[in-house]
Design a protein around this nucleic acid. Structure first.
Lengths: 190, 190
DNA sequence: ATGATGCCTTTGTGATCACATCAAGCGGAC
DNA sequence: GTCCGCTTGATGTGATCACAAAGGCATCAT
């Protein structure tokens, strides 16, 4: 999810087991779970690797983010008090730090933590789980994206989200969230 | 998914293995996958059972269906030629038969096949997979629902969907799909 | 130099086992 | 009669093993 692995990287059960000092059995269970969630690709011969997403697949996942995340933000809006907004601003500073030190994986992690912190207020665990599944599928691809364009600007859309939260502006919030979720992926196409 | 198991039914790895004549290992992998997809509930002690969904959870899943399925239908609409509509009508007759013979599980199966056949035309595998994950989570609950109210009328909203498909009416299609997906679940609340 | 072919290492699969833990049922005490 | 505690059977977990298949590499022929 955090882009620690790039697209198309191969994994072996014995290798995973050795990394985490367990036997093949728990490694297999974890891998099968991640395959079920679409986070890993299982070849016909049983080999596992991180997925290499086609442009069509990326577009689909971007659409899913564009559908799910504004809904979560809307549900979180009436519960977003000052303490939460303050926490989001703190996380947002963390995002800026990661941008400054060119830490792609850290950037993704902080960026998703920003979104998750907001969405947790929506009190919608099934919807949040589904959203995180999408993030999981996009992890390796997002690494490739943010590694390619080494952005220097701090997150602009996050400020729009925070402003809309403070103003209680639901349409503005939905638009800001939707744009933030899809802007990066759009650059990956083509 | 098809409601062959009711909510809260317990399963054991050894029992599953015996049923399908395999050892515990494949049974465990399957169970873990279904748990990852939310189709089965894993207690803190490791026991597995079908989930008993709270009203809040049902509302969430209904909202997810209401967001995902109209989008899939919209994407399928331009590709929905006569042969597809004919096939949908055939499936719809099957739904009516299941209603007539009071076969709850068969009704759910045919109903979902109707939707899946349409959505396959959307050429959106990730979105369809996510939708089927929602169906999977709702399976046992839908059994309880359709078992409770023994409906006699054939599927009304399906006819609306077919009419909208024939007319190329996108707004009508979206509304019909959304209504069909959420109508049953709404009765379960309270 | 390039392509095919054969072997060998690596890898996933399913089964089985020992062990810790949990749940339910039985029995006894008040 | 009811409630508590213990015991026993059942269950999940993680490890290991035998096996089959797949992939990679070296060798050889053209």
């Amino acid at each position: 999810m955090h882009g620690e692995l790039g697209p198309g990287e191969a994994l072996t059960l014995r290798g995973i087991g050795k990394t985490y000092d367990v036997s093949m059995t728990p490694a297999r269970e974890s891998v099968r779970r991640l395959v079920a969630e679409g986070a890993l690709f299982l070849s016909s011969s049983g080999r596992v690797s991180t997925p290499e997403l086609s442009n069509e697949r990326i577009e689909e996942l971007a659409t899913l983010r564009a559908m799910l995340e504004p809904e979560l933000a809307t549900r979180a809006l009436p519960r977003a008090h000052f303490a939460l907004i303050e926490r989001l601003e703190t996380i947002n500073n963390g995002v800026s730090q990661m941008v400054a030190r060119h830490d792609a994986s850290g950037y993704i992690r902080m960026n998703l933590e920003f979104h998750r912190t907001l969405y947790l207020r929506a009190q919608a665990p099934a919807m949040l789980a589904m959203t995180e599944t999408v993030w999981l599928q996009l992890g390796p691809t997002m690494r490739a994206l943010y590694g390619r364009l080494n952005r220097k600007e701090p997150p602009y859309h996050h400020r729009l989200i925070l402003a809309a939260l403070k103003a209680g502006d639901e349409p503005g919030l939905r638009l800001a969230v939707r744009t933030d979720a899809t802007q990066g992926l759009r650059m990956l196409k083509g």
